[in-house]
C-alpha cells in the first residue's frame, strides 16, 4: 500500500501542489471557465488567452486536494503553446490514461504522466480529471461562440 501511495503522490505531484506554476488570472483571456467536484469541494478556475488559434497563456486559481491542484498546475504548463486542437488531443490522451489504456506515444504528457498512479485510487480519479474537464468545457464553449 505504501508503494501505491508513493505512486499516487509522486514527488513531482507534491512539488506542483506545494509550488504550483501558472497561478493567477488573465483579465484579457477569451476562455474563462470554472468547475468543482461537488462531493469533495475541489474548485478550479482556468483562464486561457488565445492567439491565432494557439493557447498563448494559461493561468488558474483553485483550492482542493493535492491531486486536483497539482493536475491543474501540470496541465497549465503543458497547454501553453498548443493549438486548441492539440489541447484537445492532450485531453483525450489524459482521459485514456485514467482509463488505463496505452498512452499515445506521439503525445507528450510531460509531468502529467505522473498522474498514472491515480488510476489505482478510483475515488481520486475525479480529482485529477477536474482540471482537463474544466479546460475542455471552456474550449468547447469558446469554439461554439
Amino acid at each position: 500500500m505504501v508503494e501505491q501511495l508513493d505512486e499516487l503522490y509522486r514527488e513531482v505531484i507534491l512539488d506542483h501542489f506545494k509550488n504550483p506554476t501558472h497561478t493567477g488570472e488573465l483579465p484579457e483571456a477569451q476562455v474563462k471557465v470554472d468547475g468543482a467536484n461537488p462531493l469533495c469541494g475541489d474548485e478550479l478556475t482556468f483562464h486561457l488567452k488565445l492567439d491565432a488559434g494557439r493557447i498563448a497563456q494559461v493561468r488558474f486559481k483553485g483550492k482542493g486536494c493535492a491531486i486536483s491542484q497539482a493536475a491543474a498546475s501540470m496541465l497549465a504548463t503543458q497547454l501553453e503553446g498548443k493549438t486548441t486542437a492539440e489541447a484537445q488531443h492532450l485531453i483525450d490522451a489524459l482521459k485514456r490514461l485514467m482509463q488505463g489504456q496505452e498512452p499515445n506515444p506521439s503525445i507528450d504528457l510531460g509531468d502529467l504522466e505522473a498522474l498514472a498512479g491515480v488510476r489505482k485510487f478510483p475515488v481520486r480519479v475525479k480529482c485529477a480529471a477536474l482540471s482537463w474537464n474544466v479546460v475542455e468545457q471552456g474550449l468547447k464553449a469558446n469554439a461554439g461562440d
Binding site: 500500500m1 501511495l5 503522490y9 486536494c65 493535492a66 491531486i67 485510487f121 481520486r124
Partner: peptide, 13 residues
C-alpha cells in the same frame, strides 16, 4: 496545509 481527501487517503492506507 493538507486537504482532507489527501489525509483520508493516507489514513486509509
Amino acid at each position: 496545509g493538507l486537504h482532507p481527501h489527501d489525509v483520508g487517503t493516507v489514513l486509509d492506507a
